[in-house]
Simulated scan of single mutants.
Amino acid sequence: MRVGVVTFPGSLDDQDAVRAVERCGGEGVALWHDDADTKGVDAVVLPGGFSYGDYLRTGAVAHRAPVMRAVADFAADGGPVLGICNGFQVLCEAGLLPGALLRNERLRFVCKDVPLVVEAADTRWTADYAAGEVLVVPAKHGEGRYYADEVTLDRLEDEGRVVVRYANGRNPNGSLRDIAGVTNEGRNVVGVMPHPEHAVDPTLIGGADGQGFFRSVLEGRAAPA
């Protein structure tokens, strides 16, 4: 399975995402911000980093890159898309996911492992997990506080579209309702703030709890919407 990983100017976790895909058995394909199409890949990852230097606000410039028009079309056709950290921010700016990522509570950069509870195990990116499973995944961000209005938050809860939540009392950034990741109505587009691509190697400190995000899509465990 071919998984495209987009590189924007300022991306810094693109190669980590490629390695995660390949470690889990897929083929990583480089996509550039200026590409007009997704090169026939089977899935797309928007990686972490500081796309376009986070000018204006996180993701505000990147979501206007030519490749994002192709990613939006790909997602509309049911193609699986994962946004990690800055990629999550880009997906929200592009309107592919609801809500926004704001400056962390206390305005401090967070860099630490965080425990996550899997809430939705029926998306294209989480079907390898069980609902209620607890993962430990590294987080590193300054603008990861998930925000949406109460109507949107209630709809996400009612529709089971909160994908992962920070474990009780372990919210590192002040995200509303401890939300660490959400999905779209089709359940093929997922955004997560922590970094599963940094938790795919059991020999490293980060462990391997993040592998399930990549195995899910590579093994096709969730049917397309």
Rank of each mutant, 00 (worst) to 15 (best):
G40R: 09
V137C: 05
R145K: 15
P196W: 02
V190S: 01
P80M: 06
Q89G: 14
E143L: 05
V71E: 11
E133I: 09
T152H: 00
V5E: 02
D16F: 10
A60Q: 03
G28E: 09
R161Y: 10
T38P: 06
A70V: 11
V6F: 06
V190G: 04
N104E: 06
A199D: 02
V182N: 06
L153F: 05
V164N: 06
A72E: 15
A17F: 00
V45I: 15
V110W: 10
A167P: 11
V162I: 15
A223Q: 10
R2V: 00
N188R: 08
P172V: 11
L91E: 04
R108C: 13
A60N: 02
H141T: 02
G220V: 02
G79S: 13
Y55Q: 15
Y129S: 06
C24H: 01
V192G: 00
V29H: 07
E105W: 12
N104K: 03
T58S: 14
A208R: 13
S175W: 06
L218Y: 00
D35C: 00
A120D: 15
I205T: 14
G160L: 11
D158Y: 00
H33N: 04
E22Y: 02
D54M: 08
T7L: 14
L153D: 03
G28P: 08
M68V: 15
A121E: 13
R124G: 15
G4Q: 06
L107Y: 12
V67C: 04
L97Q: 05
R19I: 05
G160Y: 12
G132R: 04
G160I: 11
R215C: 03
N184F: 11
